[in-house]
């Protein structure tokens, strides 16, 4: 893997600006869902109907725990959600800083081998997370 720092090129799609604001919007929507009870869906009926939790089971609890500083609980409730939320927040800070302070942008290049490894690891990690949720007895 090779990471480089460079300024954005005129005419290039400004990914940091786009995804920074998208993530900010997602966070804002999430906070609204937490506060406005009638907007929330009720508990998971997939689990109630089949006994098997869906892949996102525990996401809300993980994020709640993370926001309260209970990192261990957050990782237990939903590891990927906790890591994803933290990574999303870190990216948000980077993206908005890079955009508005005109900082250099991080660009990552992968070798063919690394790209193949990433392609295969995504479904494997998602499956492992789901198996953990089932074994954990949600």
């Amino acid at each position: 893997m090779r990471a480089t720092l460079r300024h954005s090129v005129p005419g290039e799609v400004d990914h940091e600006r786009i995804w920074g604001w998208i993530i900010a919007g997602l966070f804002a929507a999430g906070l609204l869902l937490r506060e406005v009870q009638w907007l929330r869906p009720f508990s998971c009926l997939v689990r109630e109907a089949t006994g098997i939790p869906c892949l996102t089971c525990g996401t809300t609890r993980a994020i709640d725990a993370l926001l309260q500083g209970r990192i261990g609980d957050a990782l237990r409730f939903h590891t990927l959600a906790a890591i994803g939320f933290t990574a999303g927040f870190a990216y948000l800070v980077y993206a908005l800083s890079a955009t508005h302070l005109r900082l250099r942008r991080i660009r990552i290049e992968l070798t063919h081998k690394e790209a193949t490894w990433v392609r295969w690891s995504i479904p494997i990690v998602l499956t492992l997370q789901w198996v953990f949720l089932i074994i954990d007895g949600r």
């Binding site: 090779r2 290039e12 990914h15 660009r107 290049e109 992968l110 070798t111 063919h112 081998k113 690394e114 790209a115 193949t116 990433v118 392609r119």
Partner: peptide, 20 residues
């Protein structure tokens, strides 16, 4: 090209450098 080398920017690079 060996699989552990970075692809040349002029070659086909679909996932390796999504910005290229």
């Amino acid at each position: 090209m060996a699989q552990d080398e970075f692809p040349d920017h002029h070659e086909d690079t679909d996932f390796d450098n999504p910005f290229q």
